[in-house]
Design a protein around this nucleic acid. Sequence first.
DNA 1: CTGAAAGCGCTTACAG
DNA 2: CTGAAAGCGCTTACAG
Lengths: 335, 335
Amino acid sequence: MNIEDIARLAGVSTATVSRVINNSPKVRPETAKRVNRIVEERQYIPNTSARSLRVGRTRLFALIVSDIKNPFFPELIDRFEELAARQGIDVVFTHTNYDPARLEHCLQRMVERNVDAIALMTSEIDPAALKRLIGMKMPLVLLNQPAAVASGLNTIWVDYTGGFDQAVDHLRTLGHREIAFLAGPSQMSSAMRRLDAFDKAMRKLKLKSREQLVVEGDFHIDGGRAAMDKLLDSPRRPTAVICANDLMAFGAIQSAHSHGLAIPRDISIIGFDNIDMCTMSNPTLTSIGLSRQEIATRAFDVLHKACSANRTLKESRQIVSTNLVVRNSTSKTTR
Amino acid sequence: MNIEDIARLAGVSTATVSRVINNSPKVRPETAKRVNRIVEERQYIPNTSARSLRVGRTRLFALIVSDIKNPFFPELIDRFEELAARQGIDVVFTHTNYDPARLEHCLQRMVERNVDAIALMTSEIDPAALKRLIGMKMPLVLLNQPAAVASGLNTIWVDYTGGFDQAVDHLRTLGHREIAFLAGPSQMSSAMRRLDAFDKAMRKLKLKSREQLVVEGDFHIDGGRAAMDKLLDSPRRPTAVICANDLMAFGAIQSAHSHGLAIPRDISIIGFDNIDMCTMSNPTLTSIGLSRQEIATRAFDVLHKACSANRTLKESRQIVSTNLVVRNSTSKTTR
DNA sequence: CTGAAAGCGCTTACAG
DNA sequence: CTGAAAGCGCTTACAG
């Protein structure tokens, strides 16, 4: 069942059927009605490959994330997909599992697939790949890429300052002075930006950020536990720990418990991301939050505009702010 | 840059370029090498729309889930996408948000998109939509659809019996007799099958499943809390509650806490799904688990085989088993 | 082993 | 308002 069959059955040309399907205003209403009846009756579904080939656009957006199992992403994906669906755009989804080589491969696939735009919501993109992407002239939006900012690409830029300032201030008000940081992998720009925001916040409040109190984790629960173990086994324990994401904070909680420490009595813990599960942990987790829906919305809007605007990719730097959400994992220090 | 440009630059016909790109064995090695060099040099990327139009297949699989925010799904999506990528297949992702009308729309979009196969990992599919799907003759795999089993469609069939038998037996051994059930929405087949497995397990062990002890929730945390509130505000409280999924169990835990009950001392709680967060809640949650990776693997394999096997859709009913994982939310009853 | 040519199913500029 | 026809970029049966 193709457009020609429908044309024959409706007694019109394929051009007219095409116009009806695409809601062209210049078709006589009666003609449109007749065509639509046949389309309905035969359950005709136009072939998207043919349409894409002809028109040059696929109405397909690529969404690439690092790790769908990190609870940060599902909400972002959910919203992105919903916004796309509303515009009749489908979303091809892939994840890189934090592997730069795999990212390379994903991008290749997406370009072959002729997607109209790419939302690259990962940290592990390397400069060479970025350069190649720019060469493609494809609408593109990135997340937290300093290099991208320099190249005039669209970026969603998380402003970590606000949240970290609030977090450190919160702990300081509670009497904490020895504040540790469980960092993310040093090769990830998002991890480094968080560490940076932490350092700055500490300095702003005249607190010393001692090097021994910064330990690197892997953004996962297990890595958080291991990093916290290291911290707690050291001679001079901190009274509070800020973690670069919630999953590591959960690992840190487990570690503290297995060291016989009570939270927040013996040690205060703060996470980052404010995922749903912060309300479910024991104790509930004080966390720095940022709106994933906002990220998704801005990412989609930037791409959608770039697509309609005939490739005039004006630089756009969208800033998303962060905020502390206080729960039960932080309290006055007893030391 | 299209196939004709490459052909001209390499001094061959487009047919030869096409053969080289598709690794046809009947091309002279030197010719292939020359073509490949040009392809490399010019970074030529074949147009997938044109190829799909010509060949009739898109190497695109649709993956439709109810709710990506339910932690049940990310792991399934992750694995499915990974298996697909290995076969050079891309995944178009959508979610229905438990809305049957939206499912209808998603299916329409996927068929228009000419996907080669559809994995429909939702519960809320209605018989009419199912019938229409069968009519499409498209490789299809469903999750827990009794109607599908009857129609000879591919289904991943979760065997709830094992897990629920173990759960009820576990509680019974701990002295529980008044065991309540927080059910999922009654219009979802997966919810009903869980309730059914619970009822059967109770009967097997000669326990009475009283009607007042079955309350309907919505598979979300808030619904779990509300359902548990109802249960705890009733005159005759149960000593243990089994929940149709973990999210509702987390809600139930919150409800119990706000009623001043200690878990498991005052009431035991068991979840279903065994999501990662079961180890993070307070207390950690005893839960019935099933392997999401297994579901994803079987779903993908069924589809992949159906695609290669020239549409000979033999019925396949893949059974996935369930198992109890004991943690700290269950203990001897004190009543 | 290679090429000329047809055709997949659409859309759209052009003509009327 | 409608139609005839070109053409998007591939693949493949056919001929050599």
